[in-house]
Amino acid sequence: MIEIIKCKINGRDQEIAIDPRESLTDMLRNKLGLTSVKKGCEVGECGACTVLIDGKSYNSCIYLASWAKDKSIITVEGLTSENGELSPVQKAFIDESAVQCGFCTPGLLLTATEIVNSGQKYTREELRTLISGHLCRCTGYENILNAVEKALNQEN
């Protein structure tokens, strides 16, 4: 079974042959080599596979590839500017030592990007709720929250 879908991936128009049963995670990883999209559970529990779909974060492992039709999708590969400059969120994650093994990092970067792009202000407690769909076993979330706060304060 093959289906052709059109969508925008990291700013570029794409036409992709998919299996209608496959997840968006598998499409991004296997068809497009976007391996920043991680798999920690494949059932929507961990957030490692998070991508932005039309600006909102979703667990791509429980999002069918076929639903991505006509949508705009951003992965971490798309956060860096054309000339290779890091986004403020990426920079904040480095500065605040929010990265350890790095496996949860791509997903968190995207949720943090959504938060920063919202243009709103959030308290630390609200941020805890907003990133609670991401499991991280290395950091205790302390530095991740610091990084999100920093990026948020810089932008807004």
């Binding site: 391996t35 920043s36 971490v76 590969e77 890091l86 994650f93 480095i94 990265v99 790095g102 990092t105």
Partner: peptide
């Protein structure tokens, strides 16, 4: 000193076995 692997990890360039 910032982690030597931080850049690769925030850009999705760090490769894990399955990648």
């Amino acid at each position: 000193i910032p982690r030597v692997d931080a850049f690769d990890k925030v850009t999705g360039r760090a490769k894990y076995a399955d990648d």
